[in-house]
Amino acid sequence: MEENERVEENEEIWSWGAGTEGQLGTGKLQDEYIPQLIPVLPKLSFLSCGGAHVVALTPDKKVLTWGRGTSGQLGHGNLVNSLEPKSVDVLGDLNITHVSAGWNHSGFVTESGQLFTCGDGSFGQLGLGDYESHSSPMKVTHFASRHVEQIACGMRHSIALLKGERGNQVYGFGSGKRGQLGISNEKVKSVNLPHSVCGLNEVNVNSIIANGDHSAALSADGHLYTWGRGFGTPDVGCPSHVISPFSVMQAALGWNHALVLTDEGEVLMLGGHHAVNNTLKEILMKQDPNEARVEKIADLNGIKAVGVASGSEHSVLTTENGVVMTWGWGEHGQLGLGDTSDQTSPQVVNMGQNGSHEYITSKVHCGSGFTFVVRSWSDKQP
């Protein structure tokens, strides 16, 4: 870069889809079929979308929440929806480094490794040793002497990633009827205190994912492990290694499918039926009927993806040029294509792409029936 040039960095936040509980952050209680620019949000460093609420982190490690609050999942000390982003005051003196939004509960991790949860606790998913709900964040004292790195909230369960001297460990708590806790191959109805996930002791886990009745862990060397509700297969009670010749960079879980982003920018799918390439049928896993199949997504030849996200039944990806593509269930407009139609192959979302920008990136996030995109760009200016 020349000395007399400077880079102007800009960020926009867009949302669309189900919005009747304020989860889109637009200040309106309605579904939106096309992308809506949200002018009231500050810069965000992290975003997590749940059943009908959103938890966000700012660069100064403060928490904002909005959307459905009827179970206390917003952490505002009440059971009220919030149409616009509002700070979680109870966490104001803490530096929050990771957050997650589940169906009706939320989790927050502090810089010092403490875990706080709030919202619906009727399945033990808050990890507090009871089945009560809480409208303000409560400390998970079970981890008082441990260091929590990440939290991932599913529909009625949670998983936590802990940092330890002998490597990272994963714990599960909440509903376990589909195996989503990963703590036993035996049937587990629910647990209200964290239990260690089996079979990952020798795995260097660096990220965790939860949605619906599924859970997943991604290792530092690019291996994916999943457990819980089967992707068209029987439920799995302990983590199962997804066999693939590719190194996995990112994974996203839906209710009946998962998206996998490889180190080569290819997007693959486990389970589900939408947007699967039925012509090539590039099955990359063993043909055992009890194993999920990994297949390439249709109509993406030559397109390099850099990010993926999944709602309950819709999928989103972003390309290396910042283009956003969606497919799957569209009943609430969550595909951002101007209607409520379903799509069986990825479609480009019109977000007013401007070719004059020097560099555009998009980060995609999904709630159950809605979508958020954080779009950044920079321009060279004399």
Rank of each mutant, 00 (worst) to 15 (best):
4 N>P: 08
8 E>C: 12
12 E>K: 00
12 E>T: 06
13 I>N: 05
21 E>F: 12
21 E>T: 07
25 G>M: 06
27 G>L: 00
41 L>W: 12
43 K>T: 15
46 F>Y: 14
47 L>I: 02
49 C>Q: 05
51 G>M: 02
54 V>G: 10
54 V>C: 10
55 V>A: 08
55 V>Y: 04
62 K>V: 11
63 V>M: 09
67 G>H: 05
68 R>D: 08
70 T>F: 14
71 S>C: 12
71 S>W: 09
73 Q>H: 08
75 G>R: 01
76 H>N: 10
83 L>D: 14
83 L>G: 08
86 K>C: 13
86 K>W: 11
88 V>G: 11
90 V>M: 13
93 D>Q: 15
104 N>G: 03
108 F>G: 11
115 L>H: 07
116 F>I: 12
117 T>S: 07
118 C>M: 06
127 G>V: 01
129 G>E: 05
129 G>D: 07
129 G>V: 04
131 Y>K: 11
132 E>P: 09
132 E>M: 15
138 M>D: 06
140 V>D: 07
145 S>M: 13
151 I>H: 06
158 S>V: 04
166 R>F: 10
168 N>F: 08
172 G>E: 04
173 F>Q: 06
174 G>H: 00
176 G>S: 06
180 Q>A: 13
180 Q>P: 00
182 G>S: 06
182 G>Q: 03
188 V>D: 11
189 K>I: 14
202 E>N: 15
202 E>Q: 15
203 V>C: 02
203 V>G: 14
204 N>V: 12
204 N>R: 15
208 I>C: 09
210 A>H: 06
210 A>W: 05
213 D>T: 04
221 D>N: 14
223 H>G: 02
227 W>H: 02
232 G>P: 02
234 P>D: 13
237 G>Q: 02
241 H>R: 15
249 M>V: 09
250 Q>G: 12
261 L>A: 08
262 T>I: 05
268 L>W: 08
275 A>G: 06
279 T>C: 11
279 T>A: 10
281 K>P: 03
282 E>W: 11
284 L>R: 06
285 M>A: 14
288 D>P: 01
290 N>V: 13
291 E>T: 13
296 K>P: 15
299 D>G: 02
305 A>D: 12
306 V>H: 09
309 A>Y: 07
312 S>V: 12
317 L>I: 12
322 G>T: 01
324 V>L: 02
337 L>P: 00
339 D>S: 05
340 T>E: 02
340 T>Q: 07
340 T>N: 09
352 G>Q: 01
357 H>I: 01
359 Y>R: 14
368 S>K: 08
370 F>G: 03
372 F>E: 04
376 S>C: 06
381 Q>I: 15
